[in-house]
């Protein structure tokens, strides 16, 4: 099955001009098919065009992710996911907790769902690794507190960072209730030297905050996020605003949880248990 980017964007609902009939096709795709369709580095399709229209007619896209926790049991799977993301985005590994920078990582249930601890819970869940990343909240506190709009919410729901503008005040780190943000306490390039890297993605500089960007540089091209591509059976990425999308279909039939729902941030990352 092959499809060009234009078609993907239509199907993903990026443009309102497309007939409703086409929008059901997205979730029929196997994850990974998308990247086979569009992988040339210099391509530039109609995404920009589509987004402009989308802005005019209200949000038609809200990107979201589901994490099938039971499929994370194998530590190799977690490692594959983390490595895929951190290599794709040139995330530095300082090797010590004080300087640590991370976009996606695994932690226990107890740490991920701090207010939902249940001592009588199924022991198998207790020891499962929960993948943690930026929740791309619908009502993100980090965006609210940022004094320069260096972190902002895009029309498609992605909470993005403008590293050119960040002054490094770290108010967003205090504001994020999920511990999703890291600060570059040192020059990240000192530890990226000689490591596997992505030549088409920048690094960051010392003194700015960074975090998961939901792979905006990939979804724009019709690709799945790097983590989803690394483990398509664990992670599903799709449009929450479309009632027929892959993620909506999953959420309809599976029991899902979001982290700290009582805070009203409405995360876009759902955990399937």
């Amino acid at each position: 099955m092959s499809m060009d980017r234009r078609e993907f964007i239509k199907i993903a609902g990026l443009t309102s001009l497309v007939g409703a009939g086409a929008s059901g096709a997205f979730q029929l795709l196997e994850p990974g098919v998308l990247d086979a369709a569009t992988h040339e580095e210099h391509g530039h399709g109609d995404a920009a065009h589509g987004q402009a229209e989308e802005q005019a007619s209200g949000p038609k896209v809200r990107w979201a992710m589901t994490v099938d926790v039971r499929k994370c049991e194998d530590p190799e799977v977690v490692k594959r996911i983390v490595t895929a993301c951190h290599t794709a985005h040139n995330v530095p590994d300082f090797g010590n907790p004080k300087d640590e920078v991370k976009w996606i990582w695994a932690d226990t249930y107890e740490h991920a769902f701090t207010d939902s601890a249940n001592e009588f819970m199924d022991k198998s869940i207790e020891h499962l690794p929960f993948l943690l990343l930026c929740n791309h909240c619908d009502d993100p506190p980090c965006v609210r507190v940022c004094p320069t709009k260096a972190t902002f919410k895009r029309p498609d729901g992605v909470v993005a960072m403008d590293y050119h503008r960040c002054i490094g005040c770290r108010f967003c780190m205090a504001g994020c209730p999920y511990g999703s943000r890291s600060f570059n306490w040192r020059d990240p390039r000192t530890v990226l030297e000689g490591k596997p890297y992505n030549p088409n993605f920048p690094t960051r500089m010392r003194g700015v905050v960074e975090k998961c960007n939901f792979c905006v540089e990939r979804i724009w091209k019709g690709l799945q996020p790097a983590c989803v591509e690394a483990a398509p059976d664990v992670l599903t990425f799709g449009n929450l605003a479309d009632p027929d999308s892959n993620v909506r279909q999953i959420l309809r039939v599976r029991v899902s949880m979001r982290r700290k729902p009582e805070l009203g941030t409405k995360p876009s990352v759902f955990y399937l248990v």
């Binding site: 210099h42 391509g43 995404a47 993005a160 724009w220």
Partner: peptide
């Protein structure tokens, strides 16, 4: 980065990917 618009149309009407790298 901020608007998610990655296509630039120049004076000659050609479309270019907006990317330094």
């Amino acid at each position: 980065l901020r608007k998610g618009e990655r296509e630039y149309t120049n004076a000659r009407g050609e479309k270019v990917l907006m990317s330094l790298q």
